[in-house]
């Protein structure tokens, strides 16, 4: 094995015995521990930065033990740790000691979407004048497709992911949350701020249909069957107020 191959093996294997043959320094095992601590604590810090609510839900000691198990099995492969832990939620689902918190994996999914939204590509919202111009031609609206901001994503969950997340923000109150109520989270970045909103089923289905590229008419109609409470006007007003309609696409041409 190459020298760096041995070094890497020793980082992941605390019982590695060949350190005195590799290093000339005195007490190489205790010195090697510094590198091992640096490597693993930097990865735990990266996960704790990306998953602060998961960490609060399980406590620091449990989080560190869970994260360390993850790091051992899934060390980073990208040089930028911003994306590290893309598969942390899937790992949590299989992590038996966390089985008592069935909502934990979805909270992790939500926090990943928040990180992605924070760093997502910038994209200018369509001007209000252009939107007003289109609203004045209702016959064309049905065929219109909306391009949404790259930061926007939806997480439908069997658990109260939005309420759990909000309860762990400053001033939040976890005692008022029933974690087993299904919620649908909308994550987006408005300006520089990441925002999180709980959606009703109708609005959720409508925005998902827009994301899938359906024209406005079909997205609204599809949705009409799913929920009687759906209000197209309110839903568009929400997307407009959050500056997330970034493209208007008609059949022939795309309008920036």
């Amino acid at each position: 094995m190459s020298l760096q191959g041995e070094f890497t093996s020793a980082l992941f294997d605390r019982s590695y015995t060949r350190l005195p043959e590799i290093f000339s320094s005195p007490s190489p095992a205790s010195r090697f521990t510094i590198y091992r601590n640096n490597v693993f604590s930097s990865m735990l810090d990266a996960l704790a930065d990306s998953y602060p609510v998961v960490a609060q839900l399980v406590g620091e000691a449990f989080f560190n033990a869970m994260a360390l198990t993850f790091v051992q099995a899934h060390p980073p492969r990208s040089r930028s740790l911003v994306d590290y832990g893309e598969d942390f939620a899937a790992f949590i689902e299989t992590f038996t000691p966390a089985a008592g918190l069935p909502y934990l994996a979805d909270v992790a999914r939500l926090e990943r979407l928040c990180v992605r939204a924070y760093h997502a590509c910038d994209s200018q919202a369509v001007s209000l004048e252009l939107l007003a111009e289109l609203m004045a031609q209702p016959e064309e609206l049905a065929e219109l497709r909306l391009g949404l901001h790259p930061s926007l994503s939806i997480l439908p969950s069997d658990y109260a992911v939005c309420s759990l997340w909000e309860a762990h923000q400053p001033g939040g109150d976890i005692t008022k949350v029933d974690p087993c109520l299904p919620e649908r989270a909308l994550v987006l970045r408005c300006g520089l701020e990441v925002e999180l909103l709980a959606l009703d089923t109708g609005t959720c289905a409508f925005i998902q249909a827009l994301q899938a590229g359906l024209p406005l008419g079909r997205a609204a109609h599809l949705e009409g069957h799913a929920s009687s409470s759906f209000d197209l006007g309110q839903c568009l007003a929400l997307l407009i107020s959050k500056n997330v309609i970034t493209q208007l696409l008609t059949e022939e041409k795309a309008r920036p």
Binding site: Q4, T8, L11, R79
Partner: peptide
């Protein structure tokens, strides 16, 4: 320094021979 081995990124500045 080195900080990767094959596809693995180790996120520390490791020493060289």
């Amino acid at each position: 320094a080195w900080s990767s081995h094959g596809p693995l990124f180790l996120n520390d500045l490791l020493p060289l021979a």
